[in-house]
């Protein structure tokens, strides 16, 4: 894989970030992470179930020594919930990284832009490396960069929808509007979606359901690894210009004369 990129104190060579939810078992989750080649996986923080003593723990299968853990504030609908969740996650995992999500609508899980900006400001001031989930809105992404976020993470389509890159032109405008890494977060359904995101020039792709909800998550994790690598290489190689009409690949001279 060509090149590396940085988020705060961390440097990555894999441009695929993978979630850790929705797998049939911790073991399958780990196999998918290994197959994806990812160096960073997202985790959620939730109340300990006090009635389930001795239950297995995610961190035994996804050890922080092997993967950079990126805690999220998924499920938070207010600034206060997101900020407190981020602070708990920092204490839990000894990390400054936070995937900031402040959800504005239960049905679409679209982000609350104003609340995300406010929470981002508080968390940046508190020393976090803030990676905000946001709509595919170039102005919102510029504001998040101004606040000091380490990256912007526009959605490609609603979380868990698998609809792919719904608005590639906005993603392109975002790429031209900010200088921090642009990480497509949410909506990737299959390998070609991930390749499209990378061909557009995104720094990385973050996905969860696209792998976990595949019939064979481990195989899909491999497919996503290859797609992200292929898309990145194609972006770096620079694609040919699009033409409306054909342009012959074989010489037009020296054709034989028949009849």
């Amino acid at each position: 894989m060509s090149g590396t990129y940085r988020l705060g104190e961390h440097e990555f060579s894999s441009r695929l970030i993978v979630g850790s939810g929705k797998y049939s078992s911790f073991e399958e989750n780990r196999r998918a992470l290994d197959a994806s080649g990812t160096e960073m996986t997202t985790v959620a923080v939730r109340r300990v179930d006090l009635s389930q003593k001795g239950a297995g723990s995610l961190l035994e299968h996804v050890p922080p020594e092997r993967f950079v853990l990126l805690p999220n504030t998924a499920g938070c609908f207010t600034v206060k919930e997101a900020v407190t969740t981020a602070q708990l996650a920092r204490e839990l995992l000894d990390t400054k990284l936070i995937k900031l999500e402040v959800i504005g609508d239960e049905r679409t899980l679209f982000p609350d832009c104003a609340a995300t900006l406010e929470a981002a400001r508080i968390l940046v001031d508190d020393g976090f490396t803030v990676l905000p989930y946001i709509g595919d809105d170039p102005v919102a992404c510029q504001r998040l960069e101004e606040i000091g976020c380490a990256a912007v993470m526009p959605l490609a389509a609603p979380i868990g929808s698998g609809l792919g890159i719904r608005n590639p032109t906005n993603i392109r405008i975002i790429l031209e509007s900010v200088s921090v890494p642009v990480i497509v977060d949410a909506g990737v359904g299959t390998a070609s979606d991930a390749a499209v995101a990378m061909e557009l020039g995104c720094t990385a792709v973050l996905m969860s359901t696209g792998i976990a909800a595949a019939k064979d998550p481990v195989k899909m994790a491999t497919a996503m690894r290859l797609a992200v690598e292929a898309g990145r290489l194609a972006y770096e190689a620079g694609r040919m210009p699009r033409r409306l009409y054909a342009q012959a690949s074989s010489p037009e001279e020296g054709l034989i004369d028949v009849g």
């Binding site: 997202t42 923080v45 973050l206």
Partner: peptide, 10 residues
């Protein structure tokens, strides 16, 4: 009092 831990999540 809230006691939390890490769980799977995207």
């Amino acid at each position: 009092v809230e006691v939390i831990h890490a769980v799977g999540g995207g």
